[in-house]
Amino acid sequence: MTVAMNNETIINRPRSGALKWDLIGIIVIVVCAALGYVLFPDNLALLTRILAVALLVLSLDLVTGYCGVATLGHAALFGSGAYAAGILSAHFGINNPFLMTFGGIIAGAIAGLFCAVIMLRAHGLPQLVLSIALIYLFHEFANKASSWTGGSDGLAGIMPGPVFGLYEFDLFGHTAYFFGVALLLIVFVLLRILLRSPFGLLCRGIREDPLRIRAMGASPKTALVKMYVISGAVAGTGGALSAISTQVVALDALSFTQSAEALVMLVLGGTGSLFGAIAGTLIFMLFEDYVSAANPFHWLTMVGALLIAVVLFAPKGIYGTAVARFSRRGEGSQ
């Protein structure tokens, strides 16, 4: 009874406002991208990196924020996508950036399926530990298969061809940046549609109460595995973007540190919201870049202090807390 009513309110409320919010989201992303391009023309490499990591954090938000699966090993999907795109170019000579991205999506989805099958066997802390074990397993495997991945030297020799045969990936990273912005926009719109679909609502229901979902006749595990595969495809897109834009894949793409940073960015921005994921990535990476350039000795302390401050003063994440405060003020004034 309550579930049905909740669903109704969830479905009814956004119908009218959803398209508006989609449009606002697209406009905000485009404006931010244009601002970044105009303000930091010499720093497009960093901005493109932020776009790639934003895709990883979005994909993490799908499983952590919407389905409630805590994972510290999500870079496994990102790194699989990066290596797949890189290997296609470096070993098979497939240099079309769209085919490379597609390869990354497929590899990410397969890695997502593999991780889901193992991780969904446990809950809570053991699940977290399984995800850590998985990312180390991927890392050691990529390190060992050095004839394919280049091992600790990294995979070099990636030569993406021009987009549509027109736009070369130049030294300044203009093409890579626009390619990345386009990918992020497409993924953003697709995810908005997905999360509004009955399947997206089912996943939110699973996070709230898996037992009740099972009582309603749906299988939480199947839904979670599907969501994990979708999440893998998104993370694989991000990995492919990073491989195409930097033209090298390092072992770091598959590291625990990368996974932990992605989780930190997500919680920092606010879980369970696409805007939160993107905002968290942007804030964390710009902060890290600024602080590590300003004071290389203390930057880790500063990042740590930022995290503690967020937990103490903005427990729902920066975006989540801002939204909560904004809506409360809106209600108060009415």
Binding site: V267, G304, L307, I308
Partner: peptide
């Protein structure tokens, strides 16, 4: 009593701070 993610964020933050201070 907070959610696991919050705890992870806070304790990673503490770890980063301690590492930075120890390094200094």
């Amino acid at each position: 009593g907070q959610p696991e993610l919050t705890q992870v964020l806070m304790t990673i933050g503490i770890t980063f701070c301690i590492i930075g201070i120890a390094n200094y």
